[in-house]
Simulated assay, not measured.
Amino acid sequence: MAQQWNVQGLDEAITAGAADLSTVEWSAAVADAATGDVLWSHDADRVLKTASVGKVFLLIEAARQAETGELDLDEPVQRLPEDLVADSGLWHVLDLEALSIRDACALIGAVSDNLATNVLVRRLGIDRIGDTGRSLGFTASALLDRVREDRGPQHPPTLSRGNAAELVRLMADLTRGRIVSPAVSARVLGWLALNTDQSMVAAPFGVDPLAHTEPDNGFVLRNKTGTISTARIDIGVCDVDGGDGGLAWAVLANWSDEVDLRDAVLERMTAIGAELRGALRQTVTDRPVAG
């Protein structure tokens, strides 16, 4: 019997608040992770910039090539001067000139490492990353390029793009083992379990942001976030400890650079997360007592 979820408060969660968010472009959706059924959506087909969220497609390709034997995750990859970018990540402040592909993927999952991303894009190939994404049915959502400090007219206009309709399906399909294979899906979720950014939709779950590979605070959480000065994006899946799927989400917000709306957007994203936490907790309350 399908789980009955109470997500009636999500419309208010995304629109309430005193701040004027009329200029924010939203694309959002919530799905039952066990079935893939969409439970709620708000302009879910709208394609927006997704910043670092597109790096999930890189992780999928690394896991796929490892499964087929094309790639050895223990292979060392060298950073080159053209790969270097500052901003998110750790590798650019470390002395190590080379890392294993496995460790580079872990850095991307944990801290959205830009240098590791660029090294792996060069190693795996942006075209192959895109081909795999399209073969899985993701036509609006993709990693388009390497990370660049300066993006000119000769480059793709943004690092990645996507919409909530596809990205919530991505998270549900990872949970159900349908992204390439159960082994590939599990490996990607393992990397996402390292994510240290719980500032958006995931904030109300209250997990330890530095240590939640195992159930924490009663929840099992996996997510990927993306941030630039005019965008906040969170895609993820969360279940109560001992559950069998939980809720998947994709919440994307873009705005113009005329006014910094990040605080108001984060307030709305956190409100969405609070609704999801309440729905998940309700499933525990509704479970029949054994015996």
Results as ranks from 00 to 15, higher is better:
residue 113 D to Y: 03
residue 273 G to R: 08
residue 147 V to I: 13
residue 24 V to I: 04
residue 155 H to E: 09
residue 235 I to P: 12
residue 68 T to D: 00
residue 84 L to N: 07
residue 44 A to S: 05
residue 268 R to T: 01
residue 238 C to G: 08
residue 253 A to R: 04
residue 178 R to C: 15
residue 113 D to F: 06
residue 107 L to Y: 10
residue 255 W to I: 13
residue 245 G to M: 01
residue 197 D to Q: 05
residue 269 M to K: 02
residue 17 G to I: 09
residue 75 E to T: 05
residue 281 R to M: 13
residue 37 D to A: 13
residue 54 G to P: 02
residue 5 W to M: 06
residue 40 W to M: 02
residue 30 V to D: 07
residue 34 A to S: 08
residue 206 G to M: 04
residue 44 A to I: 15
residue 174 L to E: 12
residue 226 G to Y: 03
residue 85 V to S: 11
residue 35 T to P: 10
residue 116 A to M: 09
residue 251 V to I: 11
residue 52 S to W: 00
residue 203 A to N: 06
residue 86 A to F: 12
residue 66 A to F: 05
residue 166 E to V: 11
residue 152 G to H: 09
residue 26 W to C: 15
residue 212 H to G: 02
residue 174 L to K: 05
residue 234 D to F: 12
residue 114 N to V: 14
residue 272 I to S: 07
residue 285 T to N: 09
residue 61 E to K: 01
residue 132 T to A: 14
residue 208 D to N: 13
residue 89 G to M: 09
residue 39 L to K: 06
residue 64 R to C: 15
residue 157 P to L: 07
residue 9 G to E: 02
residue 31 A to F: 15
residue 260 D to C: 01
residue 160 S to H: 00
residue 96 L to Y: 01
residue 215 P to K: 03
residue 212 H to A: 02
residue 220 V to C: 08
residue 19 A to Q: 13
residue 95 D to V: 10
residue 267 E to P: 12
residue 54 G to F: 05
residue 170 L to G: 04
residue 54 G to N: 04
residue 193 A to T: 04
residue 49 K to S: 11
residue 270 T to E: 11
residue 41 S to E: 11
residue 78 Q to N: 08
residue 21 L to F: 04
residue 149 E to H: 04
residue 57 F to Q: 01
residue 290 A to M: 02
residue 260 D to Y: 00
residue 44 A to Y: 01
residue 94 L to F: 13
residue 279 A to W: 05
residue 105 C to Q: 08
residue 47 V to A: 05
residue 252 L to P: 15
residue 97 E to H: 14
residue 242 G to F: 00
residue 118 N to V: 01
residue 106 A to N: 09
residue 52 S to I: 04
residue 256 S to M: 13
residue 12 E to I: 11
residue 192 L to W: 03
residue 86 A to P: 08
residue 85 V to A: 09
residue 205 F to Q: 14
residue 138 F to L: 00
residue 160 S to L: 03
residue 77 V to K: 07
residue 171 M to A: 03
residue 253 A to Q: 08
residue 238 C to T: 09
residue 9 G to F: 10
residue 169 R to W: 14
residue 229 S to A: 12
residue 229 S to I: 12
residue 209 P to F: 04
residue 35 T to S: 11
residue 71 L to D: 06
residue 129 I to F: 09
residue 252 L to A: 15
residue 262 R to V: 08
residue 84 L to I: 10
residue 116 A to Q: 02
residue 214 E to R: 14
residue 72 D to S: 10
residue 80 L to G: 02
residue 215 P to I: 00
residue 194 L to Q: 11
residue 221 L to S: 10
residue 7 V to D: 14
residue 192 L to Q: 06
residue 110 A to N: 14
residue 214 E to C: 06
